[in-house]
Write a protein that binds this DNA or RNA. Structure first.
Length: 591
RNA sequence: GGUUCGGUAGCUCAGCUGGAUAGAGCAUCAGCCUUCUAAGCUGAGGGUCAUUGGUUCGAAUCCAAUCCGAAUCACCA
């Protein structure tokens, strides 16, 4: 149990003993005491004033005395300022917390709770390489999965690959028309980039053909339909669905190239999945559910044979769920896949990490599932995140303003190398150690940068100002860890003993922050928000760094002081390392 | 037009289940390396929390209206 919970129970208990006979709990707030006042935690008394019909000062006095009398091991002193009861926690409490947990690598993690969650993220298209937006998605998905694990869930990471459809045929057609047999090998290109180039090529040609048609008198809408390259693409999609061997072969070949490229990218960012779904296998799913919906009269059929659901009563529109030719649409497939996930893994919750542009779609998905009375309907959760934008606006693949994932990762590593070399602290590193280090720092900076802001907000990425390595950044936290490590290396035989020292202000701040780790994990898990954790780790690092500069650890004033400070250092190192791990970020032993 | 989300320091963001004088980082300025790693530490300046009204002991936080921005409202996925 964390300290806020302890305080809450103690206060509730004392209120009951002092003022109430019945069991009705009064609501009160516990805050961290502001630095300008004396104390650790603060009970806000105003909410009690009305119910107890006493002045805040009197409640504070009585409550404070009762708390100390009843819980002398927890509360040391108290003071009352206006309506605030500031409580100081005993050094004994902090010291025993520290002694017990300083070397516990599981500190802050929860026991398994028996629930199973699937987190779906990444969801790439196989017609172009991953970009910065995918990175935010990947890092978020990964981190949320890890955070959920740490708070007691069994987690499955899954990925749905959009490997079929008109957009895939576009790059296939362009390759067929313009590649002249070129391959990733023959051009020395990474497969996903190679295929992506033909997707761009398609759009260039398509645009030119539209312009030509418009110039010769077509309307824009007609031109878009009649452009020869688009017609070929439509034909190819039909051939694909019919299973024409040539087309299937080409499709497999080009997708193979893309997967090779993706593998490299995923490996380089440290991402993987427990289960990968392919849309080419799932796009027919959901049709039986449509039938079921018709029988339950949740759906209805129009004269032309298309099937719809009316969501106007819920403030949405009428949505198509099956085309008149009997083929399924996006939403139908998604309902089918949701069912498959549930049937296959018996999951208690299904989290979809998808951009906020799909808020409407996901709302419809959940609503349809609910109306159909599907058992997992309420457990569908859309973790919606904002787009990554450039200072100039949205990234557009057609305008070449996309920040490529491989490029940015490479750039971050290079920047890490450059910074490190400038500082000149790694002269004794082996070559392969250096490569690891640059990767750890570069990726750490990148991941932290994308995870430190609230996922649901859109964020602006300025490629001109490269990602920082100072201040509120991944490397700052990594550096703090490396410094601690450098101290601990000198104390290989350290064995903690109970301390008789009292905490100095900066020492107290560190243990105070450390205590919160478990609560922070729980909050990040509850809100599916890694930025809570990122902010916490930064805050903890700052507090440790202040302590570190002010007080010597290795040459402490006494052996007992040293014992206490090494415990503080060890526990900080553990929390930083485990916390960063939950963000998908490694920490180096030296940097 | 409907729906949803957002607007806090020059910039990027915390804080939003109402609580004490609104916080970080970057940038700017001034200090700190002969002692555990200066990717660090200490300090200064910088705010009409979009606007207006309401709720209350108390509002950046809740409510309403307005202004600005974004997403979405496809027989695309």
């Amino acid at each position: 149990m964390n300290i806020v919970q302890l305080i809450r129970e103690a206060v509730a208990d004392s209120i009951k003993n002092l003022y109430l006979e019945s069991d009705n709990n009064l609501d009160f707030q516990i805050n961290q005491t502001k630095p300008e006042f004396e104390g650790d935690y603060t009970i806000v008394l105003f909410s009690l004033v009305k119910a107890l019909k006493k002045s805040p000062e009197m409640i504070g006095q009585e409550l404070g005395e009762a708390l100390i009398k009843k819980n002398p091991e927890l509360f040391d002193t108290f003071n009352i300022i206006k309506g605030f009861l500031n409580l100081t926690i005993t050094d004994a409490y902090w010291k025993s917390l520290l002694l017990k947990n300083h070397n516990d690598i599981c500190f802050g993690k929860q026991a398994m709770n028996g629930e199973k969650v699937m987190v779906e993220y990444s969801s790439p298209n196989t017609n172009k390489p991953l970009h910065l937006g995918h990175l935010r998605n990947n890092f978020l998905g990964w981190s949320v999965a890890e955070i959920l694990k740490a708070s007691g869930y069994e987690v499955l990471k899954s990925c749905i690959v959009n490997d079929r459809g008109i957009h895939i045929c576009k790059s296939m057609i362009a390759w067929q028309l313009y590649a002249d047999g070129a391959t990733p090998e023959s051009t020395h290109k990474k497969g996903d980039h190679f295929v992506g180039d033909y997707y761009v090529k398609f759009n260039d040609v398509y645009k030119a053909q539209i312009a030509e048609l418009i110039a010769s008198g077509s309307t824009e809408a007609d031109a878009e339909k009649q452009a020869p390259i688009m017609q070929k693409t439509q034909q190819m999609l039909q051939d694909w669905e019919a299973g024409v061997p040539d087309v299937m072969q080409l499709w497999q070949k080009m997708n193979g190239w893309v997967y090779e490229g993706f593998d490299v990218t995923y490996k380089s960012i440290g991402s993987n999945f427990d289960k990968t779904y392919y849309e080419s296998n799932t796009y027919l799913l959901g049709k039986d559910i449509v039938q079921e919906g018709l029988e339950k009269k949740v759906f209805y059929k129009k004269e032309d044979g298309s099937v719809w659901i009316d969501l106007t009563a819920d403030g949405l529109d009428e949505k198509l769920v099956l085309r008149k030719d009997g083929t399924s649409v996006y939403i139908t497939q998604d309902i089918g896949l949701a069912k498959q996930k549930y049937d296959e893994y018996k999951i208690d919750q299904s989290i979809y990490v998808i951009g906020d542009e799909q808020n409407y779609h996901m709302k419809v998905l959940k609503l349809i599932a609910q109306k159909l009375g599907l058992p997992y309907a309420d457990d569908i959760y859309h973790l919606s995140y904002g787009m990554v934008e450039l200072p100039t606006g949205k990234m557009k693949s057609r305008e070449g303003t996309v920040v490529d994932a491989d490029d940015i990762v490479a750039e971050m590593k290079a920047t890490a190398q450059q910074h490190t070399e400038t500082l000149g602290k790694v002269k004794d590193f082996e070559a392969n150690e250096l490569i690891d280090l640059y990767e750890t720092i570069g990726l750490g900076a990148m991941k932290f940068y994308l995870l430190r802001v609230d996922p649901k907000k859109k964020m602006i990425f300025n490629p001109e100002e490269s990602i920082d390595f100072h201040g509120f950044t991944g490397p700052f936290i990594q550096y703090t860890f490396a410094r601690i490590n450098s101290i601990l290396r000198k104390e290989p035989n350290f064995k903690a003993t109970p301390s008789n020292e009292t905490f100095l202000k900066l020492e107290k701040e560190v243990i105070y922050n450390l205590e919160q780790f478990g609560g922070i994990i729980m909050e990040s898990a509850k809100t599916l928000n890694p930025s809570v954790l990122a902010n916490y780790l930064f805050h903890l690092s700052k507090s440790f760094n202040s302590f570190y500069t002010e007080h010597s650890i290795g040459n402490a004033e006494s052996e007992d002081k040293k014992n206490l400070r090494i415990q503080l250092s060890m526990m900080t190192a553990n929390v930083l390392k485990n916390g960063m791990q939950l963000l998908g970020i490694n920490v180096p032993n030296r940097m």
